[in-house]
Amino acid sequence: MSALILHHYPSSPFSEKIRLVLGFKQLPWKSVIIPSIAPKPDVLALTGGYRKTPFLQIGADIYCDSALICQVLEHGHPEPVLYPPHLKGVARVFAQWADTTLFWAAMAYNLQPRGAQALFANVAPEAAQAFGEDRRQMSTGMQRLRPPDATAAYRSYLRRLAHMVEEHDFTFGTEPCVADFAAYHPLWFTRQCVPVMADIFQATPAVLEWMDRVAALGHGRMEKFSAADAITVAAGAEPMPVVDDIFQNEHGIALGSRVTIAAESFGTEPTEGELIAATRTRYTVRRTDPRAGTVHVHFPRIGYVLKEVSS
């Protein structure tokens, strides 16, 4: 497998999830720091439209969404195991809940006025305003929890998580799995990015002890890398051949069609390209960029919308 290039920024919760997975697997990786808000021209050169964080680049293959990135890392580097065979179903279901329900409750709690004020305390007012406007645009049409409801939900979820990690070192046993990394990252944001909000953990000390165990896994072996160099890597590489897999055509859209793929809710900017794979777990489109050349951009099926481009 070619070098792993993670496009991320330090305070991104989903990036912390992947940084820890890289640490768990003790992998070397190249770190490209990207802007937290638009415009992101170097990002779009590789993804074609998708601008959520993080994404993983391997040569001329671009993997969007942390759930898919975890699967890609597991496939290329199967030890230690991220999806233990006896937990594969329950760990995936739990991780999906953590990446969605838990994440949005935590962030609605984290970014209520007291947390937002702390987060942007050392930032120019116009920068804080730009961040807020960017996230409003990315969440157009989303139903968001009000702070009191988010606080109540977050407390309940922390108690449930505490029940799990009081019995074991990690969520499902003595070793971490994908469920731990998915549950950890929104809590990490509370503790590390808006510590003024971290008093919510006082009732669940077992959660803090579990967080310390997850954090101790580290971030692997990171090397700084520039966006320009990452684009050069893509331009000089050929995308990996699409492995023959069963074409699951629930949409009536043939391979070779011009399509868009976009997230269902948050960050719905579409990526357009030629549909070259629609398997049980992912979509892949081929697209060409003047700077990055021909790339394959991959998305998970769950959480993403495939549409044919009208001629």
Rank of each mutant, 00 (worst) to 15 (best):
M1K: 11
S2R: 14
A3P: 06
L4M: 07
I5E: 04
H7A: 09
P13D: 02
R19Q: 06
L20Q: 12
F24M: 09
Q26N: 10
W29F: 04
W29C: 02
K30F: 06
K30T: 09
I34V: 15
I34S: 12
P35F: 13
K40V: 07
V43M: 13
A45V: 01
T47D: 11
T47E: 10
L56C: 08
L56G: 06
I58G: 02
D61H: 05
D65K: 01
C70Q: 09
H75A: 15
H75D: 14
H77A: 12
P80G: 08
V81T: 13
V81F: 04
V90M: 12
V93H: 06
V93N: 08
W97C: 09
D99W: 08
T100R: 13
T101G: 04
W104P: 03
A106T: 11
M107R: 08
M107P: 05
N110S: 15
R114F: 03
G115S: 06
Q117W: 02
L119S: 06
N122G: 08
A124L: 14
A127I: 10
A130M: 11
F131I: 10
G132Q: 15
E133R: 13
E133K: 12
R135M: 11
R135E: 10
R135T: 07
R136I: 10
M138W: 08
S139C: 12
M142T: 09
Q143S: 09
L145H: 05
P147Y: 04
P148G: 03
P148R: 02
D149Y: 06
R159H: 07
L161V: 02
L161P: 01
A162G: 09
H163A: 09
H163C: 05
M164T: 05
D169K: 07
G173W: 04
V178C: 11
V178A: 11
F181W: 05
H185R: 02
P186V: 02
L187Q: 14
W188T: 02
W188P: 06
T190M: 11
R191W: 13
M197G: 04
A198W: 04
A203K: 09
T204V: 08
P205M: 04
E209S: 08
G220L: 02
K224D: 12
F225A: 04
A227P: 03
A230Y: 02
T232Q: 13
A235P: 01
G236I: 03
E238S: 13
E238K: 12
M240L: 12
Q248C: 02
Q248K: 03
E250C: 00
L255Y: 06
T260D: 04
I261E: 05
A262F: 04
S265E: 14
F266G: 03
T268A: 15
E269A: 13
P270Y: 07
R280H: 13
Y283W: 03
R286K: 13
T288L: 05
T288H: 10
D289F: 05
D289R: 12
V295Y: 00
H296V: 12
V297F: 15
H298R: 14
F299G: 01
R301I: 00
I302T: 14
Y304R: 00
V305R: 01
L306R: 00
V309C: 15
S310H: 10
S311D: 14
